[in-house]
Design a protein around this nucleic acid. Structure first.
Lengths: 335, 335
DNA sequence: CTGAAAGCGCTTACAG
DNA sequence: CTGAAAGCGCTTACAG
């Protein structure tokens, strides 16, 4: 390690020479795939330490035709929802002795495509596509021979979040608390291009209870800001007593808007969100919301990906799961 | 693509054969490193599309001895602070046409070491170590020949956050608002093993103003929970009029504790945090805090890493930067 | 403008 | 118990 002199990385041949054996012997000593006499083995490991030899990742990968790496491709991890999912997926993968490498492509369509292509040139053994802008079919195309599962909308065996049932549950809860005039700030991305399924449920519910609802549903972009503007728009139309939102971020926006307009939650305005991000429990008052089942979703994605690696992959049938409603303090009886 | 039949991945040789040229010609057509006649080039690209040929990542990497990949190794991305930093680093890296791959090792010491070792076997051209449990020296050792920079405590050219100056600024601000009895919930991880530098500044400040402070500094673990228990401990000692905390999470804990104890912020208790995570702006009341300069920190780390790749690397001298105080509504004059 | 051959650093039949 | 050789899929001197 003379400074200034370019030190070539030490290879298996260097080790073999130093010990006075063949590279195959060194290789076998490391992998343990055949018996090596103890003294030889000892000298090999000694030299490995001494020379700080580490088998080249690629050379190994090329032979094995596998890296035991799974790529998780997402837009960014700043969003608390994706962050939790990424953490959970990463941990789940390691249970199967895979290692997750995460790539962040941002929201650009091209950047996302590019990353999916690049990852599927041998870098990883499989891909979990979390990119909202790229659907299951396109991901399959982009990834070619490497298996890919697309989060929550994989065509092979989609796991569906049953927003219809959850919306009914929530509306009945609100109704039972005496709320009649209810607003909804819809999520644009919930079904990835398809309309937010809660809207139809809401409309039907209101109509079956003979409540008008024109102007009480607005569409947000899942951000705190659009939660605020959404609440503003609803209240311009009518002073509702409850608002629910397509995700927690927008619920936080409603909180913020209520604070600025001196409406107190829950006494004057009840709020319900979706996802149960960590802040939902700690915001004041704690938010009633539905818990995103990160563990189940991650387990499903990983299981599906592993299945797709088999030659004889048979798509399972699609499953639908409900998120649990976590009742906290953001809903009060209508006074 | 006959289903059921194992389709070998198409190689450059397949393309060459299909076109009727040599592999070198195909290689050169792709890289553009030498002139290829237009008709040949066209046929090559036609076949590439047709066979969906993608150059094998490893074979390329092995020849080039480079992947243009930089590894970011962190514990998890759930923490809003690391999430923002990871996003920013990832974007910064792509400005230099590197791609970031993120590995999440959790908080285990062994898992972190293992990941650093694995990443530095050729997988990436450089590493950014965000792991709190592994310091600069150990990271260098673990990464061997591949350059690594350790976030905020790299021995080569540390970028230091000047907590001393910030703490003075904050204390003077609080003092000018009439606060005399002030508590502090310290951060355990701020200086990675070394004591939180704010404690000494706080002590000196209080003593020079002839204020007692015994029991008014407690140590938290950067979590909402320890923010709550910290506030509890301070109030058991004395009813202070202001508390500042080593990070925003603990400030949120103070909010939570105040809510449960029916103390209103800022009227009865002023609060200041550190980092300015996104929720700091949207919590009620919006939190006064110091903005973590993710852009600057990321730019510095990347610049340092790129410099370390040069043979003739000269350590810069260490720099100290202050975070900007963002005044919002969590501090009121002492009544 | 194009091709044959060597080599990157491993692993694994094959042979002893 | 150990070694020589082939091969993974590329790229790049070298030669024409």
């Amino acid at each position: 390690m003379t400074p200034g002199i370019m030190t070539r990385k030490t290879t298996i041949i260097d080790v073999a020479k130093a010990v006075g054996v063949s590279p195959s012997t060194v290789s076998h000593a490391i992998s343990g795939k055949r018996e090596i006499s103890t003294p030889v083995k000892q000298r090999i490991f000694e030299k490995i330490r001494e020379l700080d030899y580490r088998p080249n990742f690629f050379a190994q990968a090329m032979k094995n035709n596998s890296t035991r790496l799974i790529g998780i491709v997402a837009d960014e991890c700043r969003n608390p929802g994706s962050a939790l999912l990424i953490d959970t997926l990463s941990a789940e993968l390691s249970r199967f002795s895979y290692e997750a490498v995460i790539g962040l492509a941002g929201l650009g369509l091209d950047a996302g495509r590019e990353m999916l292509r690049r990852f599927s040139t041998g870098l990883v053994d499989g891909i979990i596509n979390l990119l909202p802008q790229i659907d299951s079919n396109e991901a399959e195309l982009l990834c070619g021979a490497v298996p890919v599962v697309t989060h929550l909308r994989d065509t092979a065996a989609p796991l569906r979040l049953d927003y219809e049932a959850m919306t009914r549950e929530l509306l009945e809860y609100l109704w039972s608390m005496g709320h009649r005039r209810i607003g909804y700030i819809a999520s644009r991305t919930r079904r990835y291009g398809l309309p937010d399924p809660s809207i139809a449920v809401y409309t039907r519910f209101m109509e079956s209870h003979h409540q008008s609802h024109a102007g009480l549903v607005v569409e947000g972009q899942d951000s705190i800001e659009t939660g605020m503007t959404g609440a503003e728009a609803i209240f311009r139309k009518e002073r509702v007593s409850a608002i629910f939102t397509g995700n927690d971020q927008m619920a936080f926006g409603v909180y913020r808007w209520a604070y600025e307009n001196k409406l107190s939650i829950p006494e004057e305005l009840s709020v319900i969100g979706f996802d149960d991000v960590p802040q939902a429990a700690t915001i004041i008052p704690p938010l009633t919301t539905f818990r995103f089942p990160a563990g189940e979703v991650a387990a499903h994605a990983v299981r599906l990906l592993l299945a797709k690696q088999q030659k004889n992959f048979q798509p399972e049938k699609s499953r639908s799961i409900k998120m649990q409603m976590i009742i906290r303090n953001s809903v009060a009886p209508k006074s």
